[in-house]
Each structure stands twice: as structure tokens, then as C-alpha cells.
Design a protein around this nucleic acid. Structure first.
Length: 230
DNA sequence: CACCAGGCAAGTA
DNA sequence: TACTTGCATGGT
């Protein structure tokens, strides 16, 4: 079986990132329930702010299905306030608790054991759960091999010319899942490493390509484009 | 001060 | 179908 050029490229970039930064130990969180809640709270939000919100929920002993389901929406919103969009996220968490209760008999373990394709379809029906949040839960809580695509992933690989800058979530996901072995450990580490290198070298404005571990993998054209931004 | 962070849904054309 | 806008705190 021949290994495609794309596969080699993606694996080479992964090895470069791992060599530079080592294992990232994602997802941060003491329990699978906490991982799931964190996935919602971190939507378009710096993780440092999510940590504060999680800390508040822990202090109030609310990090379980039963407890979170019973809390007044107002109080929940105030507790998760540091993570931003607190009114919306409180509603989203409530919807997720309802989904867990109705569809999986109040059992997180049962949900995480479900067929990943079925689980994904179900999660996407929950108001406030989009593709990235769903895939984060499936990969980092359920441990199933789906590739999580985020803003950094799109930016990095479009700047490297591997996907169009207009590519949608599913397009980018297909680049990885169509070319890499379906290995949850690999997907786990790869996504975490992309966030790491993105924070350091691929911010929205002012890309700092100098010293980036992925710099050797820029095509000539992409390298020119990157320089021209300076 | 401006800008952005580990998105998503609702509204508009 | 493809864009635009609102949601909000806290760090650089």
C-alpha cells in the first residue's frame, strides 16, 4: 500500500510539533464530566478564563449531571461568568444535561460508550453544540478517533496551502481523517499541539513564523505570503 | 486604547 | 447556500 504525499506531509508536521513541544496531556480536567463541560465553556474563549469558571463550579460541588441539572439558571450563569457569554453558555449546558438525561438515561458513561457516529449526530441536535464541541467531547471524553478542527487548525493549514482558506469544518476534518490512521491518541496529541503552536506562532494578525517548528514545511508560495504580511 | 481567545445560532440576501 | 452579527469576560 502506497502512502500518499499528504499523509507523509501531515505526519512529518506532527513529528516536528511533538519534537518541539512534547506531549500536551489533553484534555485538562479531573473527570470526563468536567471535560464535557469545559468543551462548552471554552467556545471562542481563552482557556485561562474557563479555569476560573470550572473552579467556581467545583467549589459549589456542581460538576455532576444531577447537581448541574438542579441548579437555577441564574446562579449557573453567575458561576460561569468568567468564561464569557455566560447567559448563553448556561442555557447550552442545561440543554446538554437534558440531552444526557433523555437520551442516555442520565448516564454519561452510557453516552460515551455509544457509537461515535450516532453520538455525534445526537450532539449536533443540541442547541449550542456545534461540530467542534461535539468532536471535542467524542475525542477527549469518549476517547474515539475523530479529528477536532478549530480556528488554529484552519489558519495553520490554509497558510500552508493544504486547504483553501474558505474550507469548511468538514472539509478540513476530511483532510486529516482521510489521510491519517484513525488513532485516538494521535488525534488527541495532534490537535493539542496545533493549539500550542498556533498560540505561539499563528495568531490571527501578526503571524510569527520565525522559530515556528512548522516553518520548514511552508511551501515556497506560502512562505512568500507569510513574509509579505510583516 | 484596540484586539482577540481551544464557537454557535439566528438573521439576512 | 454563504455571509454577517450578537454573545462577554479577561489578558496582551
Amino acid at each position: 500500500m502506497p502512502v500518499s504525499k499528504t499523509t507523509k506531509q501531515l505526519m512529518a508536521m506532527y513529528r516536528a510539533l511533538f519534537k518541539a513541544y512534547g506531549p500536551q496531556h489533553w484534555w485538562p480536567g479531573d473527570t470526563l464530566f468536567e471535560v464535557m463541560v469545559g468543551a462548552v465553556l471554552t467556545q471562542n474563549t481563552a482557556w485561562i478564563n474557563v479555569e476560573q469558571a470550572i473552579k467556581n463550579l467545583k467549589r459549589e460541588r456542581l460538576l455532576s449531571l444531577v447537581r448541574l441539572r438542579g441548579v437555577a439558571p441564574r446562579r449557573l450563569a453567575m458561576l460561569i461568568r468568567p468564561s464569557g457569554y455566560f447567559n448563553i453558555k448556561a442555557v447550552r449546558l442545561a440543554h446538554l444535561m437534558t440531552f444526557l438525561t433523555d437520551r442516555y438515561g442520565r448516564s454519561l458513561a452510557r453516552m460515551l460508550r455509544d457509537d461515535p457516529s450516532e453520538l455525534r449526530k445526537g450532539l449536533l441536535l443540541v442547541k449550542g453544540i456545534g461540530p467542534e464541541t461535539a468532536d471535542s467531547i467524542i475525542l477527549y471524553a469518549a476517547g474515539k478517533p475523530v479529528f477536532v478542527v478549530d480556528a488554529y487548525t484552519k489558519r495553520i493549514f490554509s497558510r500552508h496551502g493544504l486547504v483553501s482558506d474558505r474550507a469548511g469544518y468538514d472539509d478540513v476534518q476530511q483532510l486529516f481523517m482521510g489521510s491519517l490512521p484513525g488513532d485516538a491518541g494521535l488525534f488527541n496529541e495532534y490537535h493539542a499541539l496545533l493549539v500550542k503552536v498556533g498560540k505561539l506562532h499563528c495568531k490571527k494578525s501578526l503571524p510569527q513564523c520565525h522559530g515556528c517548528p512548522l516553518e520548514p514545511y511552508l511551501s515556497r508560495k506560502s512562505a512568500r505570503d507569510a513574509r509579505s504580511i510583516y
